[in-house]
Design a protein around this nucleic acid. Sequence first.
DNA 1: CTGCCTCGAGTTCG
DNA 2: CTCGAGGCAG
Length: 690
Amino acid sequence: MEQTNLFDQEPPREVKERAEVLRSEINKHNYYYYILDAPIISDAEYDKLLRELQDIEARYPSLITPDSPTQRVGAAPQTAFQTHEHRQPMLSLANAFSEDELRGFDARVKRMLGIDNGENLEYVAELKIDGLAVSLTYENGIFIVGATRGDGYRGENITANLRTIGSIPLNINPIPGEEGTASIYPVPRFAEIRGEVFLLHEEFQRINEERTERGEPTFANPRNAAAGSVRQLDPKVTARRKLDIFCYGIGYVENGGWKTHYEILSALMSWRFKVNPNIRLCNGIDEVWDFCQEWHDKRETLGYDIDGVVVKVNSIDYQERLGYVARSPRWAIAFKYPARQATTVVRDIIVQVGRTGALTPVAYMDPVEVGGVKVMRATLHNEDEIRRKGIKIGDTVVIQRAGDVIPEVVEVVTEKRDGDEIEFEMPKFCPVCGGDVEKPEGEAVARCINIACPAQLRENIRHFASREAMNIEGMGPSLVDRLIDANLIRDPGDIYYLKQEDLEGIERMGEKSAANIIAAIERSKNTTLARFIYALGIRHVGERTAQVLAKHFGSLERIQQASVEELAQVPDVGPVVAQSIARFFAEEHVKNVLKKLREAGVRTEPVTVQKERTEFSGKTFVFTGGLETMTRDEAEELVVKLGGKASSSVSKSTDYVVAGEKAGSKLEKARNLGVTVISEQEFLDMVGQK
DNA sequence: CTGCCTCGAGTTCG
DNA sequence: CTCGAGGCAG
């Protein structure tokens, strides 16, 4: 097999020339594909060229050059990385966390340059990509070495891995025969190009999905995934992760001579490096601040992570005069956005008991700021989740706010463990009532099975009084708690027997507020059947199912009398839900509460059949974002009244998505699925028309 | 039986 | 918002 004799054989001249043509041809198409994002040949044609070159190089290994596109993949795995010394150190930047600090930087720079503070200095503002800083060394225009930042002076030589990144040019010399590729900036004999390697969100997600399937731990964020990929000893693994790069500067260079930073960016682009397009040449710090704010709002739309804005004095002359302090330049600063992830320590895991008896472990952590908000608690959902993430009490964890709202524990920083961490154990008995805990085979949640459990009772009453249920204004969770503690109510029925004096006896409750509550309780006696059924808190019966039941049976008595079989006839009600409803109404305790409510005068409006409107009947609506003229609940009720359906999640069976202010992921999903998106006004027009 | 599509339930902070 | 799980169609 091994044709060692060919190795020494001098390749014929035509073959040598053909290899050169193929190399520059392929490098050209790389540029069109990865940098310009506008390929001019098909993938198949590209592969054909690449294969031809591979064949030639296989036969004549002496023709392999460092800039050959075949060298992007396929290097043999290494056992360790060599260190690489940067010719010019890769310094870090000072940070600014507020507008004041940013303006302070501007003032400082001007003072040192002897410029009047009233004058505007020219800055370049660039997005600060949240990735991994690298340095790319080019000799005579050929990519020779790529290295991580390391400690700023020495990094790791990761050349083989960086070669797999399509947007890193292997050769920046003009492409023969291609007019436009000769730069007005001569290619330096030697240059260190600085850039940030990163991952697109979609690629990050793909990698994590793949790892989940294989049972491997997932990466906490795109930056970790990028760092992990770049430090793979086997470049073939790196090649499978579609890493990308944005270049932003030059380190050591022979024959620089640029006058401005902006010019450096232009030179980089002209040498076919990928430079982030979101750059602004700013006249004065005000414009820089505008840029910072603008991108704070738009960062979600980028498809990759940024953690701030880098601000640089544009003039190289000024940069040189300003010089360096310690390990960072005085002429640049990083304006940092509030971090969306943070690390903190799990001090304890407390188990809560919910309305259905579900035992939910919640992590209590040292308070930490995430996305501008102090966070100290985060749900851990259930025991499986804790095992999956391997969380122990005392662990240092990374937390983030999912969808920018609810904090979640992303991962454990296992390096910070000292052995004193304590494994969490799900209690065998309910932490509130001491009752038995059951966890059915194959289910994720453990439940307290004591129906008289005070925790469940409390949640049940809170639910009953809530806005979506009986809507007793003023009777929020804390008032419910106080009423229970004062022994004034033991079940939802007791609410309707409260006296003005009872309420006034409660702490922080005056005559006026007590009267308001009494009035609100009185008002809630008249409600719809759907709300009433929902308020009862039957397991598996939420708002939708309650609506369906109300419409189908028309009265509470009919539902109570229905058999499991009859209940299962109802659309969206299957054996599990039917069983749950029947069992609920068979409870002696439930019968008592219903009797109390009836005797107190709680009445449900007769279910009236509205004449349905053809534009709405059978149509599914999803509301997203904030509406101006009504609440989302009201809008959904309106749709149902008119014969339509209101759903909470977008799918391809959704007919209309009504997008209000600050619509988020649902709007995006609707667009992806090609679902009709209408504005609130358009929706109102639909409703209004006869 | 499998794979959508929905709904239910639990949750955080200001 | 996200996960788990019930319902239902294929």
